[in-house]
Write a protein that binds this DNA or RNA. Structure first.
Lengths: 396, 396
DNA sequence: AAATATAATGAAAACGTTCTCAATTAATTA
DNA sequence: TAATTAATTGAGAACGTTTTCATTATATTT
């Protein structure tokens, strides 16, 4: 498509009737131009077809915009005559207020941003569900952002949400230690939007936080495996920032029991085309970990729910028996866990509690711009080890 | 809390210094009032702390707002001197444009609304995941709304999203036949926002649609059960609008094979405190259906994934064996289906395809305000029956 | 150097609300 | 009826951008 520009001065002269020659000479070009103008105009007209504003309502009702605003907005006072006139007019015109303009004035958007790794992870989706439910009751909508544990994407979302001027932010951050001190990040996080951190802390950033007791949960699970007689225990998912504290818990339990753990037991590879913490990582990492019957751990501990699923798939695929060949304790409970043969032992965390507490604190933060009790700025919820049948008992 | 109003004229006079008596008499009241004013002021000052506008950037850079806008927005032309001055100023002020103001002018919000039954349903969450991913690449954000199959809530969300002036809408509607003709609904749906219907059609509303072949999927599953020798087949979830077409498919298959189905085989109860189509409905309905060994169907067909989970839980809980006591074919495949004993036969539908096609069509709709080929306005994706071991074989 | 074309600029008008302020009208009291 | 209080109203500014338009500065051609 050929572009061309029209000289402003020529246009000016044209207006003044000085040059008509130009017009003739460039007739064809000009025509296509004016066609474009007409198209554009039509398009705009189309779009604006019937976007009735409060002004239209006011006109139809025979009152001022101010009065229309008062009755529609339910503030100030208006005579019953005005009230009904405006309401009728609004109904007749099918008037729906423009929330953007309202946001502009009121300086809020009634929108919250939720930044998580992956909404298709049941843990996050049930959090999202609950958050959305609580928020909806308070008239807020929820924007969902999947980072896939990529801190670049997190920052990009952060910026977009800031541009959108969301009223609040709830974040399960992918940020790792090293990055968190970067200027840019800090600047973003200091950018004044009420923010609640969930699922895991962001190292080096001091914001209200609601997490499970990741350390203790992993510590208990590992201790349980040790009590059942396992000495060589593998861990899956250590490359994900969420899971750092869980790895810590594992290590602590091992050390307290004078058990050594070689590096190869702590799977921390990343795989091509596999987003971290996903089912596929669970499959690949488990395959690798259990490949060699000589060095194979007698128990594995996948550090999140999707990894657990992946591990189960890999174990099944390799024809290994649970718990005879390999024991497993999963992170996060799931509906089908008791139905598997054997039923799977898991560390259970309450997405319900996390979501509820975090949402209410966020709402508090939004309306008060501070938390009522600074004391419990960091909330840590305890996990529960649900013992079923997947750990065996080598101890006896 | 006691309310009070202050007389405007008194204030006016106060300003003019005429009445100080009033002040004294009402000291306490006025004090609390001015305290509130101060609080409010402080609050506002706090909020406005450092919201740098493009005007601030322009001032610091020593250019006009127009020029600043041009370099920041990347349109029009500006001297390299201006460009760097503005960019520097923006960086220094940590300027982040106000998207609301932009939306106001540009008449778009770069936001899409997704209305579904429940984001914690894996089927919907994986759709949401994919939709969000595609949208993010095009610079759109996604607002998620859970209706819990409640058409009231759907309408309320619809209105909110319209107020927010989202650029597009993707809806798995909870609307049933009877409701769809209501004026209000139609008005909403005709309200010009580009909209794609997914998962199920909205009866009586003519909009671009992307669905699985619900009828055929259910027909094939039922036919499979019949082939395996089942004659008394129960269905779970028929009270949900999504599933109407699936029930139709079931009925058709039954009829073609000259099988009768009593009403009690088609579970359509609603349970208190249980949202339709949820795991708990699956549990309750299955319990009821299988309660009586005399009338018990030899096979059941839960019509969505959560109902399937619930059915499995109930069957396990009742100590029944699959497929000897009761066969089952589930709707929607799931990762653990092959790992259960026995592995579960399912109707598989591709959330990937639905999400992808729907999203791309929506984007097309937004930019062109019409679909390129009207012919395939309604897209129906075929399902796949994945036969595993949960249906037994009574035929031999 | 004059004439012309192009690039760069700032003022100001939108966009659709909310809300203050000043004024007018209605209701109440003296 | 006059004086006072209360209720109702409309004009217009503001929110922070984008973008048109008219103009001025710069570059290019005769």
């Amino acid at each position: 498509m050929k572009t061309f520009s029209i000289n402003y001065h020529l246009f000016k002269r044209e207006k003044e009737g000085i040059i008509n020659i130009f017009l003739k000479e460039n007739e064809n070009v000009l025509n296509s131009f004016s066609k474009r103008r007409i198209m554009f105009k039509k398009n705009m007209d189309n779009r604006n077809e019937k976007e009735n504003t409060i002004r239209d309502v006011a006109n139809l009702a025979g009152v001022s915009v101010a009065t229309a605003g008062r009755v529609l907005g339910g503030y100030g006072s208006a005579s019953s005559k005005s009230v009904s006139a405006v309401k009728d007019a609004a109904a007749k015109l099918n008037y729906i207020p423009n929330g953007i303009a309202q946001s502009m004035k009121k300086k809020n958007t009634k929108t919250i941003g939720l930044i998580i790794a992956n909404i298709s992870n049941p843990y996050f989706s049930s959090i999202a569900r609950l958050v959305e439910e609580v928020l909806a009751k308070e008239g807020y909508n929820l924007i969902i952002c999947n980072t896939d544990e990529d801190s670049e994407r997190e920052l990009s979302y952060l910026r977009t949400l800031y541009e959108k001027r969301v009223d609040g932010l709830m974040i399960a951050s992918a940020l790792k230690d090293s990055e968190s001190s970067e200027d840019e990040v800090l600047k973003m996080y200091k950018n004044s939007i009420p923010t609640i951190i969930i699922d895991r802390e962001i190292p080096g950033i001091d914001l209200p936080t609601v997490t499970s007791d990741n350390f203790r949960g992993a510590y208990e699970a590992t201790t349980h495996l040790i009590k059942m007689g396992h000495k060589k225990i593998g861990v899956i998912g250590s490359n994900i920032s969420t899971l750092f504290r869980r790895v810590d818990g594992y290590k602590q339990a091992m050390e307290e029991n004078f058990l050594t753990f070689d590096d190869y037991l702590i799977s921390n590879k990343t795989y091509d085309n596999v987003s971290p913490g996903d089912v596929n990582e669970g499959i690949f990492a488990t395959r690798e970990l259990l490949k060699d019957p000589e060095t194979r751990p007698t128990a594995i501990f996948p550090l999140n729910n999707l990894l657990t699923t992946g591990a189960l798939i890999a174990i099944d695929e390799m024809g290994l028996r649970i718990p005879e060949d390999v024991a497993i304790v999963g992170w996060d409970d799931f509906d089908l866990a008791p139905l598997l043969k054997p039923p799977i032992t898991v560390v259970k965390q309450s997405s319900y509690n996390i979501a509820n507490i975090a949402t209410n604190r966020l709402l508090e933060l939004i309306s008060n711009s501070s938390l009522s009790s600074e004391a419990d700025k960091k909330v840590t919820l305890s996990t529960e080890l649900v013992v079923r049948g997947s750990c065996g008992n080598k101890a006896n």
